[in-house]
């Protein structure tokens, strides 16, 4: 991220052989929002877009990144050039279609180890996500659980896994014990959107309402954490 002129950035990108996304920002707004006091400065975001670390970008720990990657929907592409169509689906995180294509491929060549690996990776991702959704619900974090079921419905769109996730979500929504936290979770979405838009005051306003209405829920706990971090608001 830099606020320098486009021409300068383009020359720099070419000279350094940069291959990762670069954002040309206007003025100092992003620097101020992220509390940047010198360059370079970094912030690490998890799959939800939550800031989990800030500091010198060269000092971020590989272990921390590896731990965060565990929680993403990352599946490795199939090596070689034979499975372009499946790789495209994997990269697009369209795992419902990818699964179907892999099974079709395995129907023709059941011993294709690369396909078996890809099938198992996707299955592993599904199982991992279902397990965390279940664990969260058991811990009373129903909002967190429903978020994962929603994510699975997107990742496995059009497949039985998506149907299963939807069914699990419906069961959760009918669970009387989940009512308060899900109410809080729904309310919190507005605050989350405000945070993502950089409007922390509006977020604080929403979170205060969440706490007032749904005091004793995990969601309210998260709302309180935000207010403690931003005590000025």
């Amino acid at each position: 991220m830099s606020n320098e002129p486009t021409g300068l950035l383009e020359r720099h990108i070419e000279k350094m052989g940069i291959a990762y996304p670069i954002a040309k920002v206007k003025g100092e707004t992003a620097d101020r929002t992220y509390g940047v006091k010198g360059f370079p400065s970094g912030a690490l975001l998890d799959a939800k877009g939550r800031v989990v670390w800030t500091g010198h970008p060269g000092s971020v720990s590989h272990e921390q990144i590896a731990a965060l990657l565990e929680d993403t929907a990352f599946v490795s592409s199939i090596p070689g050039s034979e499975h372009k169509k499946i790789n495209k689906l994997i990269t697009a995180q369209d795992f419902g279609k990818a699964q179907k294509a892999i099974l079709k491929g395995l129907g023709k060549s059941p011993d294709d180890e690369a396909l078996i690996q890809a099938r198992d990776d996707i299955q592993g991702l599904l199982q991992r996500k279902l397990k965390s959704a279940e664990a969260l619900a058991v811990a009373g974090d129903f909002g967190g659980s429903i978020e994962i079921y929603g994510e699975l419905q997107t990742l496995f769109k059009g497949s039985d896994s998506a149907k299963q996730a939807k069914a699990e979500q419906k069961t959760l929504e009918k669970n009387p014990a989940a009512k308060a936290d899900l109410g809080a979770w729904k309310m919190m979405q507005k605050g989350n959107a405000a945070q993502r838009a950089g409007d922390f005051e509006k977020a604080a306003k929403v979170y205060r309402k969440v706490i007032k209405k749904y005091g004793d829920t995990p969601c309210a706990g998260r709302a309180q954490e935000f207010l403690s971090r931003h005590s000025r608001l």
Binding site: M1, K26, R32, Y34, G35, L45, K48, G49, V51, V52
Partner: peptide, 15 residues
């Protein structure tokens, strides 16, 4: 307000 660890990252507007 400055972003803290734990916050949802505000959008980065730009090209």
């Amino acid at each position: 307000e400055i972003v803290q660890v734990g916050d949802l990252a505000p959008e980065i507007e730009g090209e």
